[in-house]
Design a protein around this nucleic acid. Sequence first.
DNA 1: TCCATTTGACCAGT
DNA 2: ACTGGTCAAATGGA
Length: 294
Amino acid sequence: MEEVMSLICHGVKLVKELESSLPEKPPESLPTSLDEISNTFGDANERLKTLLEIRNSETALNQTKPVIVSRANQMLMQIEPGLMQEYWLRCGESTSFQGTEAMIQTQLIAVDGGGGRTLTASEGSGASGSSTPRQRRRKGEEERTVLVAALRTGNTDMPPDDNHTWRKYGQKEILGSRFPRAYYRCTHQKLYNCPAKKQVQRLDDDPFTFQVTYRGSHTCHIYSTAPTVSAATSIAPISSTTVTSHSLDYAIVNMADAMFGSGVGANMDFIFPFNDPSQHHQCFPRLDDSERHK
DNA sequence: TCCATTTGACCAGT
DNA sequence: ACTGGTCAAATGGA
């Protein structure tokens, strides 16, 4: 891990050097510098992915509860203590910071098949005489569980904004849990038949961490092309296999954006796979009330 | 009036 | 029988 840290640190240093020398730097020398930065971060990224894969497989084998540590934060603090502090200061209390904090997910802790099923119209007739059958969880339905840090400011009861609009449709006391579980569905469920849902629950042993389980994917489209990095940096990547490493990617790009301006992160596409269509959110971003459909 | 949230009840799965 | 997921009526805010 130290190796990865030093690589990231080196990459950050290179970016800083490039930034400071940018005005007088001849354009011909830019590709070399960018290549060097690209290789450094790319190497760190690859090593980090390998490490995290090993770690995740160990977790799965041990069947132990994941340690709730904002690992990316800790790592970055280790790299350069002042860096994170400056990053936070630059971000202040802004939404982007909260989103980033939210995105610093620590582990992909579960992908299971679920136990329920979806009733068909014919078999759902028993639901208290209701004309519409109750939708139950699909067996084998895609499910991604991530841990996100609670907001330290504002309403800490709310899960961090993930740039989607969710409507709460239920809350349950869960046996053995100190905190209730909240159930959300996509606001556009009816309008666009969007099946995306999420469950949010505080962890018993760490009330400042939410366990967020996403089910279904958004079908309410807006992006006809790839979203910009500024969008990507404020939207948590949703993938059953790449959540952890990409979160770190986003965190690092966010830091770069905050440290060096929004352009830097955008220029880091070559390092982090924002161009991967599977990473694109397809749901509408939050709309102002005035813009919301009536 | 519309929309989001709350909350008790219902129901499928185990 | 118990638990978790969902529904839907009631309520409140804009």
